[in-house]
Simulated scan of single mutants.
Amino acid sequence: MAIEMGDLKKGLKIEIDGIPYKIMEYQHVKPGKGPAFVRVKIKSFLDGKVIEKTFHAGDKCESPNIIEKDMQYLYDEQDLYYFMDSESYEQIGLNADQVGESIKWLLESMHVSVLFHNEKAISVNVPQIVELKIVETPPNFKGDTSSAGKKPATLETGAVVQIPFHVLEGETIRINTDTGEYIEKAK
């Protein structure tokens, strides 16, 4: 299905030259002279690179053949991360490039969304908010009670995030996986 300039919007998935992209930013420009155009920032599902592209009236792009499957992360072995389809129980192994930034947040048994382009796994999306246990963080010192201060904390997945001073080792916290920021203590 062809997508025209007027159909573009933030969050839309498009395909250009056989590569699937997601529109991250969208700007419709109507200059004083000449025809209107659309300037977008698009992020590749294959390598995560963000590029800027301009679409003029009459320009078309395709809708990608992307399927999202709910899968469960099982384990990693050498350079592969194994996932199981929640419906068919079929297992697939993905390399670190395909898993991408999601590696920092993966816990065994976690349900994730795996994107397939033309029946080939291309990327893994973890939930936007995950709960992880702090395995290492410096101890608090007297006077470290201000909410403005932060300290580094290593989580059970190996990721390092900045947390407030009052949060202690062994506690479980909620993290925004899009930004890598601490949200709150888990209840």
Rank of each mutant, 00 (worst) to 15 (best):
A121Y: 03
A121C: 06
A121G: 04
S123H: 00
N125Y: 01
N125C: 07
V126W: 00
P127C: 05
P127F: 00
P127V: 06
Q128F: 10
I129K: 11
I129M: 09
E131W: 07
I134F: 04
I134T: 03
V135W: 04
E136I: 01
E136G: 05
T137K: 09
P138Y: 05
P138N: 01
P139Y: 02
G143Q: 03
G143C: 05
D144G: 15
D144F: 07
T145G: 14
S146N: 09
S147K: 11
A148S: 12
A148C: 10
A148F: 13
G149N: 12
G149L: 14
G149C: 08
K150Q: 13
K150G: 09
K150M: 13
P152T: 07
P152E: 08
A153D: 00
A153P: 11
A153C: 08
T154W: 04
L155N: 06
E156K: 12
E156S: 12
G158D: 03
V161W: 05
Q162N: 14
I163R: 11
P164H: 02
F165E: 10
H166D: 11
H166V: 12
H166Y: 13
E169V: 10
G170Q: 03
I173S: 03
R174L: 15
R174D: 03
I175W: 04
I175D: 01
N176F: 10
T177A: 09
D178N: 15
T179N: 03
E181G: 06
